[in-house]
Nucleic acid binder design. Structure first.
Lengths: 147, 147
DNA sequence: TTATTTACTACTAATTCGCTAGTATTGGTA
DNA sequence: TACCAATACTAGCGAATTAGTAGTAAATAA
């Protein structure tokens, strides 16, 4: 049970957009360089985030990506869920018909509750929280905004 | 981010041991038949559970497996953790040296907190809880012991 | 000593993951 | 209009992981 690099890179990508120093759109190329992640790979990842309406893209010279909404209004769940492909620990949660035991399975309830707990947790953390935490760590006075 | 079948089967296996009707050890063969899981595969899974001291095995005729402790004293975490191979969402949580960004990474803290939350949750659920839930579902009066 | 059961080891088909590569398309700029 | 800079799209692929199968060895009760 590992978080995919897609999700991890996706969150770092969004964080990079959220902390963009210069005004205007951020180049994927710059994010790739700063975060040491393949630009091509990032471009595949961000497609899903764009599809969910989290970022806005502009093509051509002086193009790039921008957050489509304020960072405070974007939760980690919105970022991670599409990248994991419907964050779902066990198939039978989203599709009960995928297992004949669904109706009477005691373990299914536990996985379902656990899944809900994870999604709820991710919903409580906004991109702005991450940005603040990031700035705190850079400030380097040892200050740590515990979540 | 899926739970492996190993973990899922492992929990069902332990549940089967916890609800064993007959006294004495339970045959893996019987669990395999009732749960519709390959006996060979189950035998690989239960090795890890035995190594963790959760079950006791006896060989030969009238052998089988028994819980090594009362179901009330076995938590889901104890079952799932060894089967997932140290349930850890992201490598850098257990091994900070695996990523150069560990010290200053804002996202790492979030994954760490999420990981802790998951383990804590699994720690709150005992095998006995599962057994009760299972019996409730079989009773079939529509009673559901929500977790 | 034989039948029954767990214990151990090796292999393998299928899937998923983490990318790379190439081309197309769009839009600003000269 | 021509060109360049950027995103958009599609295909493929090597490595790792997953979910088993298969076969043999060892222990033990009867």
């Amino acid at each position: 049970m590992k978080l995919s690099t897609r999700s991890r890179y996706g969150v770092r990508l969004m964080l990079a957009l959220g902390t963009g120093e210069k005004p205007g759109p951020t180049l994927l190329k710059d994010v790739a360089r700063r975060e040491q992640i393949s630009e091509k790979y990032l471009s595949q990842i961000i497609i899903h985030l764009k599809a969910k309406g989290l970022v806005h893209a502009s093509r051509g010279a002086h193009g790039g990506y921008e957050l489509a909404r304020p960072a405070a209004e974007i939760t980690l769940r919105e970022i991670v869920e599409p990248l994991e492909g419907d964050l779902c620990l066990v198939d039978c949660i989203l599709r009960p018909a995928s297992c004949t035991r669904s109706a009477t399975c005691a373990t299914r309830d536990v996985w379902g509750a656990m899944n809900t707990m994870i999604l709820d947790y991710l919903d409580t953390i906004t991109l702005e929280d991450l940005v603040r935490k990031h700035r705190g760590k850079l400030g380097d006075a040892g200050i740590d905004f515990a979540i």
